[in-house]
Computed example of a mutant assay.
Amino acid sequence: MYSILFIIGLTHLLNDSLQAVVPAMFPILERSLGLTFTQLGLITFTLNMVASVMQPVVGMYTDRRPFAYALPIGLLSSMFGMLGLAFAPNLPTILISVVLIGLGSAVFHPEGSRIAYLAAGNKRGLAQSIYQVGGNSGQALAPVITALVLVPMGQFGAIWFVAVAFIAVLFLTYISRWYAQQIHIFKQNNKKKKQTAKTKVKLPKLIRNSVIVLIFVVFARSLYHSAISNYYAFYAIQEYGASIAESQIFIFVFLVTGAVGTFVGGPLADRFGKRVIIMLSLLAPAPLTILLPYVGPYVAMILVGVIGILILSSFSVAVVYAQEMVPGKIGTMSGLIVGLAFGMGAVGSVFFGSLIDSIGLTQTMVIVSFLPLLGLLTFLLPSDDKIREINRKLGGSTLD
């Protein structure tokens, strides 16, 4: 169902471009409202933690009781959040606005991932890549938003994204009609599986432990992604003497190449295995991330591009890997990996913001550069063949 995949990918772009407005406004808010790095980290923390905490909750609920029109309703919340952000006079109002945006994102991501799963056929890696590359492309718009909209218009420029949210609501209303039909089919198939189930068993210990390891690995990747996305522009301004608009080029390159990596990673995982791609996505760029704080601006531009491709090549792969570890829990696994694990990177935003205020920007970026080495934990994950073997052994059973 490529038409459905492309539409949900496009709405993912629109949804994540709304989220991208928030960190894109950081240089504007720092100057207009006099916010500290710690306060900027608190904004990111609020946005991502609302989304991360709610995504698994939404996923678990809709695994049991799918609701087709949850998607457009969620984007309406984001639309009101953008409206509030455009007029927010102080930090508390900004926090309330980003909570609304976070709630919309919390609903969109697990449900969007489910739609990609249902439309995938036997190409789950490719389907998730099409879906996820939309989101990464939306995030990549952040520096463009800053340079073309927020720099000339200031905070009020966020008003344009109320229209973006409304367009997304229209697309998702169309998607929801198709989704309602799929929910009916899904319920019928699930009912038949339950009728033919022989026993009810708990998840094997290996799978439970592997899910925990995978969440931590994705957290490490997200922590690095969050640090670069939120603070590298300030690093470029300080170390390279770049203007606000020029500093956004580094972030744009990182996020655009990350979108490319996300799209390429899915098909590669379908061919070479998901665990292999997850492992390489962290360990391969590790030498480059360690080198990044010590090079000049032109070499840095090349490095952030290569790092972006490599480190985000496992973005969609990790979701499919988790979904295959726990079949039948599509929304829950998407919520845990995209929501909880990615949102935990928001904790790092607060931590790194405080660290910058305490020890300085350069020293903090050096510490950040070692995060991809945590990819060594992927050696603890089972191979794709091992997961398929476990699922075959559990055939005819339902998982608690």
Score class of each variant (00 low, 15 high):
Asn48Ile: 03
Ala142Leu: 02
Lys329Phe: 13
Ile185Tyr: 11
Gly348Ala: 09
Ile228Val: 15
Leu291Gln: 03
Pro143Asn: 07
Met1Phe: 09
Leu10Arg: 06
Ile290Thr: 08
Leu95Val: 14
His109Cys: 05
Val164Phe: 08
Arg208Gly: 13
Met301Tyr: 07
Pro23Gly: 05
Ala140Asn: 08
Pro372Thr: 09
Pro382Gly: 07
Gly308Ala: 03
Pro382His: 07
Val338Gly: 04
Tyr174Leu: 12
Pro327Lys: 09
Lys202His: 15
Leu394Ile: 14
Asp400Cys: 06
Leu377Phe: 10
Trp160Ser: 13
Thr378Trp: 05
Met325Trp: 05
Leu35Met: 14
Lys386Tyr: 10
Thr262Ser: 04
Gln323Glu: 12
Ile330Arg: 00
Lys191Asn: 13
Val149Pro: 05
Gly353Leu: 04
Ser397Phe: 08
Phe370Gly: 15
Met301Glu: 00
Leu336Cys: 05
Ile7Trp: 07
Val50Trp: 00
Ala227Gln: 11
Leu399Thr: 08
Ile101Asp: 02
Asn90His: 15
Thr196Val: 12
Ser316Phe: 07
Leu91Gly: 11
Asn136His: 11
Gln181Lys: 15
Arg275Pro: 00
His225Leu: 13
Gln188Pro: 10
Ala236Cys: 13
Gly266Lys: 01
Val350Ala: 08
Arg208Met: 14
Leu288Asn: 06
Asn230Thr: 12
Ala119Gln: 04
